[in-house]
Write a protein that binds this DNA or RNA. Structure first.
Lengths: 136, 136
DNA sequence: TTAATTCTGACTAAAAAGGTAGGAATTCAA
DNA sequence: TTGAATTCCTACCTTTTTAGTCAGAATTAA
């Protein structure tokens, strides 16, 4: 699980959309100002959010984005995964030379990181976008 | 919380020490071979582990490292913190221009990342080094 | 037609990750 | 007392990732 600004921005922007869901399409310019995130960067992020069917866009003047689904049906894990393709804590599988993924010497801590991944994911699986729009 | 190879290596090396605790000081050369981690990199890691009073060293031939405390008293969080000075998911406090830490517009997701930090930390607080030396 | 907007791809700068290199200091053992 | 094994320490290096910027095309409402 990668936890970077990009993921954070994505969640912030989605929370902004959810908060303003009643106002029709929200432009990235608005979000950029409200959340203090560069417009060009937001565009990149929303490309991915759109590809992952989390938002719908309308182009042209007065265009913008709206949530594709109700905020109650969007899990934070959906958002994080959308912008950070990679979701593993650990690259045991990738670096075969590192001696972790061979059958004989599975690294001592392999199970540990598996558990950690689950632990973190369970957090993002539990929290819904809607949960962010209430009491804050 | 940063979760990188360095932290993983540190945990692996400490688990190795714990497993071989009865054999007197363990040299980094041994650990390097067993865990397949570069010696020079281990040296850097152990410098920090030592500064954080997690291991004791003895220099010279037949020297090496031993755990400073019983494995049952070393939490994984101790190890991770030792090698990754920085432990925050989030840099709300650092980037003051990013508009998160001012009193008025605390960013929507601020509480969320605080909770996440706690969630992850609780994992590392719970697991002890000793837990890694059993069933794996 | 024009301004506002999304869409897209290429580029870049800075930071972090993941190391290497070289040598000094210490200590054991032959 | 010398040499090998080891920790200690600092500086450097390379690659990858992050966090953007830039330029411009496509679309659409007014």
């Amino acid at each position: 699980m990668k936890l970077t600004n990009k993921g954070r921005y994505a969640v912030m922007a989605m929370a902004d959309l959810a908060t303003n869901a009643d106002k029709g399409p929200i432009s990235l310019t608005e979000i950029s100002i409200r959340q203090n995130i560069s417009l060009a960067y937001l565009e990149q992020i929303f490309l991915k959010l759109k590809n992952n069917k989390l938002v719908k866009s309308s182009r042209g003047a007065n265009g913008g984005y709206i949530l594709e689904k109700p905020a109650s049906e969007i899990k934070l894990s959906n958002i994080i995964h959308a912008v950070n393709e990679e979701v593993k804590t650990l690259n045991c599988k990738k670096n075969s030379k590192k001696g972790c993924n061979n059958k004989f010497t599975k690294c001592i801590t392999h199970n540990l990181w598996d558990q950690l991944d689950q632990h973190i994911n369970s957090f993002f699986e539990t929290v819904k976008l809607q949960d962010l729009t209430k009491n804050n």
